[in-house]
């Protein structure tokens, strides 16, 4: 199942001021796989995810040590174009956050920002992205209506469509279904499995069954450390580390 390394995390330490929130995180993520990050709140999984598109840059006092390589390029190198990086690394958040504009404009926002002007080209991108997010058939007749008017699950798929409209290689998802009902969750999970054909997906989830269902690999974080990173089926049936076992069986967390 292992393919090419897409994301290489090498001895990554993250500090928020004096507090060290990530300790020596070293592992590789492979392209066209879904990797789940699990662990109790405050374990560092979301912080590490945010390192991947330099969202921690916005936090005062945040400092990253070590290297994160995406396609062998150090994203913290001086010559890194952060705008280009974020085009390449899309993100979907916990709460669906469509822009207060039409469905069409939500999806076209990113491509426009990156200079796509032709209506025809934009139409193509919007349709392809909405299809990619399994939303097209539901919204194709109301592309001009507001994205805010959609249901929660649809809004989240709109956000996924918006994230993939710039054709990123990597899609980061930070608890993308925690605000959704079971049906909407099931649709997103189905979509996630589908998305890995075209993207590398890294997903933070508190739902262990979800991690077991959608991911190929699972990384277990605890107290800022990467405790275990393995094929998902192994993590959830017979993990090597006692702490992983205790966490997945609900002994703590």
């Amino acid at each position: 199942m292992k393919g090419n390394v897409q994301i290489r995390s090498q001895n990554v330490n993250l500090y928020y001021g004096p507090a060290k929130v990530l300790k020596d995180i070293t592992f590789d993520i492979f392209d066209h796989t879904v990797t789940a990050l699990i662990g109790p709140s405050g374990c560092g999984k979301s912080s590490w995810l945010r390192c991947l598109n330099r969202m921690n840059d916005y936090i005062a006092g945040a400092r990253v040590e070590g290297e994160i390589l995406i396609d062998e390029h150090d994203i913290y190198a001086r010559d890194t174009d952060v705008i280009a990086l974020r085009r390449n690394v899309g993100m979907v958040f916990q709460k669906p956050n469509p822009f207060p504009m039409s469905i069409y404009d939500n999806v076209a926002y990113g491509p426009r920002l990156h200079g796509v002007r032709s209506r025809e080209q934009l139409d193509g991108i919007v349709e392809r992205s909405l299809r990619g997010a399994a939303l097209w058939t539901e919204v194709k007749d109301k592309l001009t209506s507001s994205g805010i008017g959609l249901s929660g699950g649809q809004q989240q798929r709109l956000c996924i469509a918006r994230a993939i409209a710039t054709e990123p290689k990597i899609l980061l998802m930070d608890e993308p279904t925690s605000a959704l009902d079971p049906m909407a969750t099931a649709r997103i999970e189905e979509l996630v499995r589908d998305l890995k054909k075209n993207f590398t997906v890294v997903i933070v989830t508190h739902n262990m069954q979800q991690a077991a269902r959608v991911s190929d690999f699972t990384a277990f974080f605890l107290l800022g450390e990467l405790v275990e990173y393995e094929v998902t089926t192994k993590i959830f049936t017979a993990p090597d580390d006692k702490r992983t076992e205790d966490y997945i069986t609900g002994r703590f967390g």
Binding site: M208, T237, T244, E245
Partner: peptide, 9 residues
């Protein structure tokens, strides 16, 4: 319980 790990085994 949707058991995992040792519970599942």
């Amino acid at each position: 319980f949707q058991p995992l790990g040792e519970d599942l085994r």
